[in-house]
């Protein structure tokens, strides 16, 4: 299960950020590195919803709780 989540999130992030660095450094700060913005977050949330059936509302989490690949995976795992 965890592998599926990791793979799905990383695929989504790679596509959204347009950079495979998200696979290399899973603690990279996506906001500070300017890899993700508000618009990308909406794509990410819909992507997670469609691939894994996990619904996250845009106001549910603070940005600091979802600013690295690892943190995003952790939040999704919590909801599996």
């Amino acid at each position: 299960m965890e592998n599926k989540v990791v793979e799905t999130v990383l695929n989504l992030l790679e596509e959204i950020c347009g950079d495979d660095v998200v696979r290399v450094d899973m603690d990279i700060n996506l906001l500070e590195e300017d890899l993700i913005d508000s618009l990308d977050y909406t794509e990410l949330l819909v992507g997670i919803e469609e691939a894994l059936g996990i619904v996250m509302a845009p106001s549910e989490l603070k940005r600091e709780e979802m600013d690295t690949p690892n943190k995003i995976i952790e939040q999704v795992m919590k909801r599996m």
């Binding site: 618009l39 949330l45 469609e50 845009p58």
Partner: peptide, 26 residues
């Protein structure tokens, strides 16, 4: 506005495939 208007509109538009082009939607 980002959390309660923009993001919700964008998510609905992506789900419903309202726009062919991503940038038009944005």
């Amino acid at each position: 506005f980002r959390d309660f208007v923009f993001s919700r509109f964008m998510m609905a538009s992506i789900r419903g495939k309202w726009f062919k082009n991503k940038l038009t939607g944005a």
